[in-house]
């Protein structure tokens, strides 16, 4: 199996999962697609140096590229209109809209930390490492992000729990 075959197989298998993470990180379908495409392009350039499972490597590119874009362009954090959102099933629509809107109103750092901690299941240390910030900052940012979600959308309090 050649490197190209490996890469193609990886893209086929992991693009849906990478897309989900990218969508949560960016909150926007188009940006998420660009983010995944860029991460895979960069991974392909360095494919010969990746030993073992490429997934951690590609995911790390995904996280840092998102932060890098934000730093470069200070992307607007308001969500795009509903026409950019794909159709959803009917169940729990109200709750998802609320959580999605609330996520969009967090700062990039807060949203990124939240996604890495609670969706990607990274530990505080791993999250700090991935984003180049201290563990203490991860802790405080997580707390701030959850606090802000509670303030923004009180009905989410049950979902994310009360402050400890």
């Amino acid at each position: 199996m050649t490197d190209e075959d490996d890469f193609t197989a990886y893209v086929a298998a992991r693009t849906p999962a990478l897309s989900r993470t990218a969508y949560l990180l960016t909150g926007d379908a188009h940006l998420a697609e660009d983010l995944v495409q860029t991460a895979l392009y960069k991974a392909a350039k360095a494919w010969h140096r990746i030993d073992g499972d490429p997934d951690p490597y590609v995911r790390r590119i995904l996280y840092t590229q998102n932060v890098s874009w934000w730093r470069q362009r200070r992307l607007a954090e308001t969500p795009l209109g509903d026409h950019d959102r794909p159709a959803r099933p009917e169940s729990d629509v109200a709750l998802r809209l609320t959580l999605e809107d609330a996520l969009a109103r967090l700062t990039t750092k807060q949203r990124t930390v939240l996604v890495l901690r609670f969706f990607e299941d990274l530990t505080e240390v791993e999250t700090g490492r991935a984003l180049g910030i201290g563990t203490g900052t991860v802790k405080s940012t997580t707390r701030q992000a959850l606090g802000r979600l509670r303030t923004l959308v009180p009905e989410l309090a049950e979902l994310i729990g009360e402050p400890s």
Partner: peptide, 22 residues
Amino acid sequence: MTTERLRDELSRVAEAGPTARI
């Protein structure tokens, strides 16, 4: 804190995102 539920809801939001066309 019910982080399991938050994780579930994040997963549902993420599922709504389209799969990137590479």
